[in-house]
């Protein structure tokens, strides 16, 4: 497992906040503002992320479209995805995409616990403390 997390959200505030928090906790985090950008990140960077945090409603390519593309590439299918959304049916949507979910508004603890479950310890060891 790596400690790279891909954060896909069109809301810049959310994206920057989550990326920064993850970095503060010793992860390497990469932001993408839609599904298309996220696919570009997957194509161009190695190693693959240990986790993808995915918003559902985004312009250009939404979360569902991203997930479909992700599953087409055998190299990416194993990367776990957690959907983060404010929609009340996020649970149903996440189930349809065969992924986990977190609900907005979101606190740091559930976010970090979820990341910890999927990713190995970070460089400075803070995540394992």
């Amino acid at each position: 497992m790596s400690h790279r997390v891909l954060v896909v959200d069109d809301d810049r505030d959310i994206r920057d906040t989550v990326v920064e928090l993850l970095e503060d906790h010793g992860y390497q985090a990469i932001g993408a503002s839609n599904g298309r950008e996220a696919l570009d990140v997957l194509r161009t960077s190695a190693p693959p992320p240990c986790l993808i945090l995915l918003d559902l409603m985004m312009p250009v390519m939404d979360g569902r479209g991203f997930r479909e593309e992700q599953l087409k590439n055998p190299a990416w299918t194993e990367i776990p995805v957690i959907v983060i959304s404010a929609y009340n049916d996020v649970e149903v949507q996440a189930r349809a995409l065969a992924v986990d979910h977190l609900r907005k508004p979101l606190g740091m603890r559930p976010l970090m616990e979820a990341v910890k479950r999927h990713c190995s310890g970070a460089k400075d060891g803070r995540v394992d403390s």
Partner: peptide, 24 residues
């Protein structure tokens, strides 16, 4: 109304995460 509350949740998430980060 449903959309409005959904929209409000996004900044609310940022707020919560930032408050917690600040505390840290």
């Amino acid at each position: 109304l449903s959309l409005a509350s959904h929209e409000l949740k996004t900044p609310l998430t940022v707020l919560q995460l930032q408050l917690e980060a600040l505390r840290e």
